[in-house]
Design a protein around this nucleic acid. Structure first.
Lengths: 142, 142
DNA sequence: ATAAATTGAATTGTTTACAATTTAAAGTGA
DNA sequence: TCACTTTAAATTGTAAACAATTCAATTTAT
């Protein structure tokens, strides 16, 4: 009896890691890891987010984000600034190189394109909906 | 534009982590983390595996497994032994407590049962097949 | 107004994950 | 036989992930 039959969470665990691995090489062009790339996507969509706002989007806490953001700051992609209005808050703003990197990023093809290329449109939609249902359910549980 | 629309890998990344989190509490009864639990599942299915065989099943390398297995050994759940026939190999065998833990494990309900409880049987099957296709494709790529 | 509770980030400590390298053993070929 | 390669695991170094705690700033309730 294979493990994926015994343990329904296993496929998610493996696929998630395979995806991170698939992104490794293309993201080297940007000098980013996959989680760092996700943070940059958040900021490219909306600059100046608080740490907690990024955390909400990505389901990550400050324990993960603080060191990650410090690394992005060291790479000169973002600036971390205490909010003047509320000194508890730390606002993350893109630097010029951070903003500029979006062009390179847009030029990258997602490694997942190849994975889904032979899927019918309907299958993709169904699958996306099911994944969303799983995520919703898991987030509503705790 | 939400991140899951821009980045097709994101749902896998989040769901995988949410699943690990969902397992945290129930697995505390066993004193195991989710990856440790997966390793134990492999061994309960077939005892005496080599490190590399566990790695094949779980898509993990020795860099991850060696310290994890050392922790399981410290917990007295497994024994690590150099193979006599081939001294490069390390064989992982369950201890008596390690074998005994399977009973407790079998008694646990998967936290994912609740996630899928309101799914129709057909949906589950379709979803499983699509996940398997994704995994196969990702593994055939590199 | 001020003690108590809440919030936002940072910190601490442990575990995973993985690339890259190392070490030792076993297999191969000339 | 003896260099050459391959294999199996361990090691090294870096980054993520997360629970638990801490710390400071802000809210709130009295």
């Amino acid at each position: 009896m294979a493990i994926e039959e015994k343990e329904p969470g296993f496929p998610f665990y493996v696929v998630s890691r395979l995806i991170s691995q698939a992104y490794r090489e293309p993201l080297q062009t940007l000098g980013l890891t996959y989680p760092q790339y996700l943070v940059m996507l958040c900021l490219w969509e909306k600059d100046g987010l608080m740490v907690s706002q990024i955390g909400e989007k990505l389901c990550l806490d400050s324990g993960t984000l603080t060191p990650l953001l410090k690394r992005l700051e060291t790479m000169n992609l973002v600036k971390r600034e205490r909010s003047e209005a509320d000194e508890r808050r730390v606002t993350i703003e893109l630097t010029y190189p951070g903003r500029a990197l979006q062009n390179k990023a847009n030029a990258l093809a997602s490694p997942l394109d190849a994975v889904f290329e032979d899927w019918e449109e309907k299958e993709r939609v169904v699958f996306q909906e099911l994944m969303a249902r799983i995520q919703d359910k898991l987030q509503s549980q705790p």
